[in-house]
Amino acid sequence: MSQPFVALKGRAFWTCSYLPCELSSAFGYQPRRFWAQAGGTPRADRVFPPNLCSGVRASLEEAMRQATAEDLFLLADCCDADRRLADALEASFPGQTFLLFLPRAEESWPELASELRRLAGFLAKKSRRPLEEEALRAAIIEEEALRQSRRQFHARQSLGGVSPITYYEALRSWCGRAPEGSFPLGDPPAEESSDQGERAPILLLGNSLDERSFWEMLEELSFTVVADDLCYGEKLSQVQVQAGVEPFEALARAYLARPPCPRTQRLEERWDDVLRRGIDRGAIGAIFIPTKFCDYYAYELPILVPRLRAAGLPTLVLEMDYGQVSPEQLRTRLEAFRESL
């Protein structure tokens, strides 16, 4: 992927997919989503109590393990746990954290645009260079091209033509976390399209699933993910930033208009959208994995699970600690679910 604007400086770690990567790219930072690492979270456990979101814990752990003075942490106040993550990062890496006030309603785009300008000010200060509108527009075009290829990928995926591991690798790559030598974006290996006949097409719901072994198990048990509701999955691919509009306004409008997440107030629309995608794409079941101690997804369960089941989608609920998968329990549950479909 070319980066025509400015030389790369440090990494800009993010947690919430409502935070436009276009901005950090425009200032020469490499946007990277925090990604849960193997080996538990011993460093983060010193800062956070055990009953705080395991995703936030994994993010702090990664920062404490490998972040440098050149890196930035761009967070949104999307939940109480992320706010506390901002506090913890600020304590360990003073001056490297930005916390954005993220409104929920689409009509609040002027507030978001104003917050994005504040973020641009922070990035300008940190990178010691002023914002160049050209660089931002170029970053928007580049990111838009990436999302276009993501949407093409989802189109193939929705036909059952993508294996779980391929999708996992794609997600990693889209989040700036592709391992060396992974496949080029939007171009999964050719053999993917064959031998998918025996697979059970499912709808995958939950915040995020960074743990590779989970996807490997889906693969082993012949599931295929035809639609998802992950934070960094298909919902993010649907963002469409308009060209020709003032960039901050365009970004704020586009990100708030994307398919809504459980934090928004557009809940009926969200539930309909998730259900429709699952059914339209021929899913025969759903796997719902709320991250432990995530209130937003925990409040989705009582409403969404009965709806999925009523719509004829048998649903397996797996409570899973982020990056901490107990393989035996997981296998038993997934295998039993596969047998029941």
Binding site: G40, P50, D321, Q324, V325, S326, P327, E328, Q329
Partner: peptide, 16 residues
């Protein structure tokens, strides 16, 4: 042993 819950860890041990 990845389970931190005693009951789950026991079942993990049995599985191992």
């Amino acid at each position: 042993i990845s389970s931190t819950c005693t009951v789950f860890a026991e079942s993990e041990v049995v599985g191992l």
